[in-house]
Structures are given as C-alpha cells and as structure tokens.
Design a protein around this nucleic acid. Structure first.
Length: 420
RNA sequence: GUGGGCGUAGCUCAGCUGGUAGAGCACUCGGUUGUGGUCCGAGAUGUCGCGGGUUCGAGCCCCGUCGUUCACCCCA
C-alpha cells in the first residue's frame, strides 16, 4: 500500500458515512428551525486573524496551527476553529449593520496539528453558529437549547451540560490577582508553572490528582462576578430551568480559546474516553472589536461532528440501514439494457432512488447484488418483457411479484401504493 | 512535544518454547433452462509495515525506522 491519508485525519466511507451524514443533519436541523442563516466560509484565512482573534498565547495558536506561505508571500492558516472566520465574514460584508442579532450558522472541517488520539483528529468536522449583537440572557439560553436539541435529535442521552460564567473583564482581573497569589504559593513543576503563567485557570482543568488536590481551595471565578455578570448568569440558568434543560454548574470549567467571557458551556459525553467534550461555546464580549468590527457582544458554539458520531455509536443509537435503494433494475440483453437506461432516467427524474446492474452478471448474482444493496423492489427486464410489454416488479421483503405494463410503469410507481 | 500498546489476506484475528503462513467474514463462480436472503461445493487474494542484525533457518529474537492506537498537554 503506497499512499495513505495524512496522519490524524478521519475519513468517512460507507456504511459509516451514512451515519456521519445523519449526525450532521440532526445537529443542523434545530439551528435552521431557530432562524439561523447559512454562511459558507473559506477553510483558510490570513494568519493574523487567528492570532488576534483566538489569542496569541493559546495552545491552538502557538503550536497547533497549519500555517504556510502562499505564492504571494502571505501567511495563510487553515482554520483551527470557526468563530473568528464567521465574525470576519460578518464584519467584512456588514451583516451586522442591519437588525440585531445577526444569526448565522456553518459547518465544515477544521485543522489542528495535534497528536491524534481517540476523538481528536488533525482534521475534524464541526457544526457551529454565532449570534451577534444582543446581550439578552435569553439568547444564551436559546443557543444552549439548540445544541441540546441537536444531540437529542441524534438520540444521545448519556451526556451532560456544564455551564459557568467567566464574568466580564473586571470580574476576571480581580479573580486573576487572587488566583495568581494562590498559585504562587504552590510547588509546581516547570511545565505546569509555565502553563499557569499563560492562563492560571488551566490548572483547574488538570487531570492529575495531585494538582486537583492542590487546587481544591483555590479562589473560584464565580465568587468574583460583578453584579451585572452574576444576574445575567442567573437569568440564563432560570431560562434553562424553565425550558427543562438539565445542566450543572461547573465552576472549574475552562475553555482553550481566549475570547470567552460571561456564559460558557460544554457538552460532555460519558462514554468517550479522554476527549469527552462533544460541543461547547460561550459568549465573547470583546472579540468583534478585537478583529476590527463594532463593539458588539456575541455568543456561539461549535459542535464536533466526529465526536457526536463516536458518542452515537457508543450509545448504539445510529442506524446505518437507510442507504438502500427503492428499485433495482436488472437488464438481460442489449435491448433490455437500453430500455433500462431510459427507464432509470425517467424514474430518477421523478425522485425515485434507482440502481441498475452493470456488466453481464448471471441473474442469480444480480439478485444477490440487489439484496445486498438493500433494494426494496427489483425489476427484471429481458426479451420477453420487451416483447409482451409487461414486467414483474418484485417486492424483496415478501418475495411477491406484481405485473405492470412497461408503459404505465412510471405513472404506477408515482402512486401512493408504491411509496418508493 | 512526552509516554505506553500494536503492526500477519479487503475486514476481524490465530500462528505453541524460531523450521519459508491459516480461520471466520467479505468477494467470484457453481449446485441444469431467467429470480435474492439459508445451506453445500469450488476459487482468487499476502514482498507476515519497512530496513538492518543474530541464526543452518525469523511472522516469531535484537536494533532502527515508519505507521497506527491510547494517554498526558490541549480540545470538538
């Protein structure tokens, strides 16, 4: 085997590609129903957009970006996340000049040069949305509810929603001072110390027992929220409760992108191993302005399709059987082949899923093929059928055959009783 | 970037203490004339990841390398 896909990319092919499609559509449907509008965005952007937007000190920017120079000497980067690019599009085309909030959604692949792992790929797929220009806590709740509806549409049940508030700039600054003071008093190894210097909140998320223990008495950001932030967060919770969306407050929830402020959330699946976050998002107060837009707040999420699929498979809620065809046509002989080509074209034009058998397979083998492809009905066309003008259409599940005239076939199949 | 596991037919894997490879599934054909799902029969398929070493002899041992996988970091 000479060529293989680049390291860390996931490819989806039958039959799993069908489940992938289903998961993606399930996540997308609630977004569309809430009035969010599609934006198709480039997979690469000017590098600076990400260093400015995502945060120059984040791991994502410092060591996980696919960056290269294009032929004109510009520094280009494959998008490591979706929000910044979506906002760039909104700002560039003035979508935020009309009625607010602007509500957009998108889906596609993202790239991060990390060491691959279960549920973590160098190219991964996400469905995301952004709502720009409203501070209303009801919007926070809507965004969370949409994600939750997507997971439910897939059929997932073994996940939980964790939320917290990162507060506003002042809340954070005050907390950071005390947290740094606390961390300075700890004995940490060099790399952990370095991480703490970049973002002290990270230590809350450390998986090592000894670090967790050290952090149990650390000052919690929630205790430092300004009155405004606290009441906003309280409203979000109230709306979620009213909508009967289960959640828990994780005061130690940390996200890897620097732009988050206020409401922040994560959906965590319990059957996924180390990479258990299937989706997450939050509010970002300064981001629009940071990348050259109006000073508008915004909120959004990114839902990992790969991980949602993994979760669906772990829960056994994906059924990949619906990739069958309505009608399988088996031609016997040259004249029949021509007839089949014409017929399949007509039937496909009227919306049916039609497959035909290619090559000169023995009839028996052609029947097997139809069966394996999940054909609901099979039609055999040979010399006698062409001569008599009558064909038998066989229902595979019952084995029963019905006689229909060739000329009325298209019309007959369009009827209610033949719900192809 | 750091650490552990694994690399044998398309897939899942077996191969005992070293003697030049096997199963199941899948695939193709057949079980008398143009009808599938079960059953039976036949058949094709491997540079045993790659390179070196030890040995009379290596899929099995040693070294390296690449790939893969899981975990840390980080995150969807």
């Amino acid at each position: 085997m000479k060529y293989q896909a680049p390291k860390g990319v996931s490819e989806y092919f039958p039959p799993r590609s069908y489940a992938f499609e289903k998961v993606k559509e399930s996540l997308l449907a609630p977004i569309r129903r809430a009035g969010y509008k599609l934006v198709e965005l480039p997979v690469f952007e000017e590098t600076e957009l990400f260093t400015r937007g995502v945060g120059a000190s984040t791991d994502v920017v410092t060591k996980e970006m696919y960056t290269f120079e294009d032929r004109g000497g510009r520094s280009i980067t494959l998008r490591p996340e979706g929000t910044v690019g979506a906002l760039r599009c909104i700002i560039e085309h003035g979508l935020d000049r009309g009625a607010l909030p602007v509500k957009v959604f998108y889906s596609g692949q993202y790239f991060r040069a990390e060491r691959p792992q279960a549920g973590r790929y160098r190219q991964f797929y996400q469905v995301g949305l952004e709502a720009i220009g409203s501070e209303d806590p009801a919007l926070d709740a809507e965004v969370i509810a949409i994600a939750d509806a997507g997971y439910r549409a897939i059929g997932l049940t073994k996940y939980r929603l964790e939320i917290t508030s990162l507060g506003d700039r002042q809340s954070r600054a005050a907390h950071k001072v005390d947290l740094m003071k606390y961390i300075d008093g700890l004995t940490l190894d060099e790399s952990t110390r370095a991480r703490a210097d970049i973002n002290p909140l990270r230590l809350f998320d450390d998986k090592r027992e000894e670090i967790r223990a050290m952090m149990t008495d650390a000052p919690i950001l929630l205790d430092y929220l300004s009155e405004e932030s606290a009441s906003h967060f309280a409203s979000v919770q109230k709306y979620l409760q009213d909508m009967k969306i289960n959640f828990s407050i994780n005061e130690r929830l940390v996200r890897g992108l620097d732009y988050y402020t206020g409401t922040t959330f994560e959906f965590v699946h319990e059957m996924l191993g180390a990479q258990s976050a299937i989706g997450g998002g939050g509010r970002y107060d300064g981001l629009m302005q940071e990348i050259g837009g109006q000073p508008l707040t915004g909120i959004g999420f990114g839902l990992g399709i790969d991980r949602a699929l993994l979760a669906a498979e772990a829960e056994g809620v994906v059924n990949a059987e619906d990739f069958g065809v309505d009608l399988f046509i088996i031609p016997l002989g040259d004249a029949a082949k021509t007839q089949t080509m014409i017929l399949s074209q007509e039937l496909r034009n009227s919306g049916h899923r039609i497959e035909i058998v290619f090559g000169d397979r023995p009839l028996k083998s052609a029947m097997k093929l139809a069966d394996k492809n999940g054909a609901r009905y099979v039609l055999i066309i040979g010399d006698s059928e062409i001569e008599s003008g009558m064909v038998e259409i066989k229902e595979m599940s019952t084995g029963r055959a019905t006689s229909i005239s060739l000329t009325s076939l298209v019309a007959t199949l369009a009827q209610e009783s033949w719900t192809l």
